[in-house]
Simulated scan of single mutants.
Amino acid sequence: MENNRNILNDQNPHWERTFSDNEDMFGQSPSEAAIKAVKIFKDQGKIKILELGGGQGRDTIYFAQNGFQVYVLDYTNNGIEAINKRAHQLGLSNSITAIQHDIRNPLPFDDEFFEGCYSHMLYCMALSTQELEFLSQEVRRVLKTDGINIYTARNTNDSHFGTGIHRGENMYEVGGFIVHFFTKEMIAKLAKGYTILEISEFEEGQLPRKLYQVTLQKQNCC
């Protein structure tokens, strides 16, 4: 078990090297998930949002360009540097606060600090179910009442599910990256204290990757 934990921890330097070697790994266009999230947040009147696992910032920039005040966390230093650099180049530094942070630790914000939270494929990283439950409740803590949490995760319909090296639970390592593949049962498990507004399925990339996009609303109480 301890050896498996060390393998999961090693994803951090792996992502650091990946971002260092490829300064534009995911391109500059926003993801389909971010485009949909912007519409949801605007319809709900949410302006102050938290993005988890911002990577190199393609969605972060899109949110800022659409009038949102964005606080973005990523656990790689290279990712944070890339976000700050691009924000400065585009004159968006006043709309973006980028912080290096490991989301397995408590989020560095006060209770009810945000109106919305967004993450694209952060939930399906090398995180155990226990860590995901902790994260889900930390997000709930920092959201205002009726705040919106939108996340995406690769699901068990994905062609990579069950391939590569099994790393426990529904986690498999493919090409050096560990992915936690989601079921709808997992979504329900992580929704304690939330109302599930929508679960949709979409495809992304050349494989293509198959993902769920989940929209949750914070309940007044559990």
Rank of each mutant, 00 (worst) to 15 (best):
V142S: 09
I99W: 07
L90E: 15
N94T: 06
A153N: 06
F113V: 06
H120F: 02
S119F: 07
Y118G: 05
Q137V: 02
T145H: 09
V72H: 05
A82C: 12
L122K: 08
Q130K: 13
G67M: 00
Q100A: 14
I96A: 08
M121P: 12
F113T: 10
E133D: 11
L127Q: 00
Q69L: 13
G147K: 03
S93Q: 14
T129M: 13
Y151R: 09
G116R: 05
E138W: 05
A98G: 08
A98P: 01
T97A: 12
E133L: 14
G162V: 11
F68N: 13
Y123D: 03
V70N: 09
A126M: 05
H88L: 14
L73W: 12
P108C: 00
N149L: 14
F114W: 07
F63N: 10
T97Y: 11
M125L: 15
L135H: 01
L107D: 06
D158V: 04
G91T: 06
L132E: 08
L73G: 00
A82W: 01
C117G: 05
Y123V: 12
T145R: 12
I103W: 03
G67T: 02
S93M: 10
Q137I: 06
Q69N: 14
Y123P: 00
L127T: 10
T145D: 14
F109H: 10
R154Q: 09
N94F: 01
D102F: 03
Y71T: 04
I83R: 03
C124T: 07
G116V: 04
S95L: 12
L92K: 09
V139C: 11
L122I: 09
A153Y: 03
R154K: 15
Q65R: 15
I99K: 02
D146H: 07
Q100R: 15
F113P: 00
I96S: 08
G116F: 09
R154T: 02
E115Q: 15
I99D: 02
G147L: 11
N66T: 08
N78Y: 07
D74L: 06
V139T: 02
D74K: 05
N84D: 11
N78G: 06
G91Y: 13
M121Y: 14
S159Y: 01
T152L: 02
H88Y: 13
R141Q: 00
R141G: 11
N149F: 14
F109E: 12
H160M: 13
H120Y: 13
E115W: 08
T97K: 14
R141D: 05
R140W: 04
N78A: 13
L127I: 09
P108A: 05
E131W: 10
V139F: 10
F63E: 08
T76P: 09
V139P: 04
N157P: 10
N94R: 06
G91S: 09
D74I: 00
N78V: 00
H160P: 05
E81N: 14
A98R: 02
L122C: 15
F134S: 05
N149E: 07
V70P: 05
V72F: 01
F134P: 13
I80K: 04
L135F: 01
Y118V: 02
S93N: 10
E138M: 03
A126C: 04
N157Q: 14
R104Y: 05
S93R: 01
L90S: 12
I103M: 07
N105A: 14
K85R: 15
R86T: 01
Y151L: 07
L122S: 07
